[in-house]
Computed example of a mutant assay.
Amino acid sequence: MKDPAVKRKTKDSEQYSKELVLGILLTIAILDHTRLFFHYWNTNPGNLESTTPLLFFTRFISHFFAPTVFFITGTYLFIWSKAKSKRQVCYGLLRLALLLISTELVVNNFLWTFDPFYRTIGLFIIGALGLSIGLLAFLQFLPEKFLLVLSLLFLIAHHLLDGIPVTGKSPASVIWYILHQQKYIPSGEYLFIVNYTIIPWFALLSLGYTTGYLYRRKWLLATGIVLTCLFFILRGMNWYGDPKPWIRQETFTKTVLSFFSVTKYPASLDFICITLGPMFIVLHCIEGLQNKLTDFFVTFGSAPMFTYLLSTLVIHLAAMINMELTGGSWSALLITPDSYQQGNVLSDYGYPLGTVYLLWLLFLFMLYGCCKFYHSFSSKRTV
């Protein structure tokens, strides 16, 4: 029987570095989720009139998680597909897509709301990843170079669609929302949320898939530098790359925040450049790095779905228990469409950001123990 730590040490440096980056970014995503449930309710970190540099930064660094997940998933799918026929790849991707979409609708939506009536249904990262993989199942039949060019075109040119706003609840409108336009769709007592629009997120997944054979340490550094520089050029010119241009503010600090306030929903070209660029540079720098600290993060990154879902459960449950212990009602944190409205029962709920960071550290160590147990249990089943 092999110890999970020994198994990790036998991994090639490329896989280890990917899991390390995923682990680091998962811990940052957990910080942002802790902020959502424990900081002052309905606070918008991107509102320059009310935000602080630390609050803005706390949200901004979480942006790196989703693009990294989509791109690295694409590279994993490329490696998995190499020994299979196109038809086998198609069936395998469709099964994975169905599993992810089901997980989003049944599990992830419940963990975010704890509402047994599912009155809030969202298309978030897991569902968007599933839809993107389902689309890849069919488009992978295209020649690789053509699919690569198509993916780049999606990323670069999707802002040309920004001028086509759609309203209503017709099937065609809903399809458009899923493809390109973030939308909150109220319907009676239900609320449907489309956050992760498919065009740019599929392009990221497809880029990882079509450039899998190019994945080299030197390539990562060069691409990372190019993307980071491209962000500063595009953002500095302020005419293309993000639907929300930056504006000179009354203070230098707020001007900097405005400059880096890029659009995630839908993912803008500026957003992709400033997240993927530094991530590639980090992947280049950490390859071959391994010690107790990196093993700590790899424990999270080697089981990202388990870590993500468990962390959401732990954070939401802890918030409900805290609400009950501090004189409120745990049912206030059953998230419904009313929870998104200003002036709701949660308007006076929340803690300073320093408290959020302390809670985040507590959650990390709790989750670390659970993830270690999960790895130990899963390794016993495979021996």
Rank of each mutant, 00 (worst) to 15 (best):
A5D: 00
R8N: 02
K11Q: 12
L22N: 09
G23F: 05
L26P: 14
Y40H: 13
N42D: 07
T43D: 09
L48I: 05
P53C: 00
F60D: 02
S81A: 14
K82R: 15
A83R: 14
V89I: 14
L99N: 04
I101L: 08
E104H: 05
F110S: 03
T113G: 02
L123W: 02
G127L: 14
A128L: 09
S132H: 02
I133P: 05
F138D: 00
F154N: 08
D162Y: 13
S170L: 06
A172W: 13
A172T: 14
V174H: 09
W176V: 09
I178Y: 07
P186T: 13
L191N: 11
F192S: 08
I199F: 11
Y215M: 08
A222V: 13
I225Y: 01
F232I: 04
M237L: 14
N238M: 01
W239Q: 05
W239H: 08
P245Y: 13
T251C: 05
F259T: 03
K264W: 05
A267G: 14
E287D: 05
G288Q: 04
A318E: 13
M320C: 13
M323K: 11
A332D: 14
T336W: 01
T336M: 03
P337Q: 03
L364E: 01
Y368R: 02
C371T: 00
F373Q: 03
F377V: 10
R381A: 12
R381D: 04
R381N: 06
